[in-house]
Design a binder for these strands. Sequence first.
DNA 1: CCCCTTATTGCAACAAAGTTGCAATAAAAA
DNA 2: TTTTTATTGCAACTTTGTTGCAATAAGGGG
Lengths: 144, 144
Amino acid sequence: MKVENIQSLKKILSDKGYKLTKARENTFSALLSPEPQSMATLIEKSQNKVDRVTMYRNIDLFEKLGIVNRIYVGWKYKLELSDNFMDHHHHLSCLSCGKVIDIEDEQHINEFIKSVTDKFSFTPRHHQFEIDGFCIVCSASKKK
Amino acid sequence: MKVENIQSLKKILSDKGYKLTKARENTFSALLSPEPQSMATLIEKSQNKVDRVTMYRNIDLFEKLGIVNRIYVGWKYKLELSDNFMDHHHHLSCLSCGKVIDIEDEQHINEFIKSVTDKFSFTPRHHQFEIDGFCIVCSASKKK
DNA sequence: CCCCTTATTGCAACAAAGTTGCAATAAAAA
DNA sequence: TTTTTATTGCAACTTTGTTGCAATAAGGGG
């Protein structure tokens, strides 16, 4: 469900009976970024182009259409354009200082996902694997 | 970091220089439940025993101490008492209708976790594995 | 190209969720 | 019991997300 440009966005929308509007084009533009972004950031980037409420509604729609992923980092969620068939985020998150460490390694994971989704006839869009705990620094220190 | 009773709660707190207070006892009581609960539920359960703000502060503290886990289900987080060494939640979440399907199967996962956390000298507290996509019903239907 | 239908937008108003500063209070240590 | 220091509750505020509705703009059909 990767969106390459405005035309492919239009196709995805119209296939489901939705319209391509200026607000949706701008929503899409705001999403272009190498990093996942918070809702607040998207809203700010689109100041006086897209209304706050419309932004919420379109992000919801995009998510249902598989155009964007909502991922959790620490306590908050962020948004990003879907990229490949299966986007993913694997990280370690420190409960104390909030540091986030990204991890790679997919092999085991991919088999696991396939076996599970097949079992429920579930169509995966993206996945997220988070381990919460304490980083090497915070494991040692006493308070805070 | 499992808390068995008020005495073990007191020990965990005082070991780090925190005090055991009535508010914290009540926060702990509210957390007792077979199911993860939302912040709103905890606040409501403790009506006129613990102030809203204090509840937020103590839940934050408990999380840092590893007494509670914050888990994401669909779009919102819920809270639960830590139970074992490694709590976990694995589920499929439908982006369209919001249905959540729990999955078990740990084997691959556990090795994976160990290899990764060892590598970063990270002390795991709990983990969560979520696959977002479309359930068998929503994969078929056209809109919404 | 214009008209018509219907989805979509922006606005205003509201509801929910989370945060901050501070004076009063209650643990725990002495 | 007194003293010290963390913790609480309150009030006020910020941020985040939602709802209803009238005005507007896509896009399909003639």
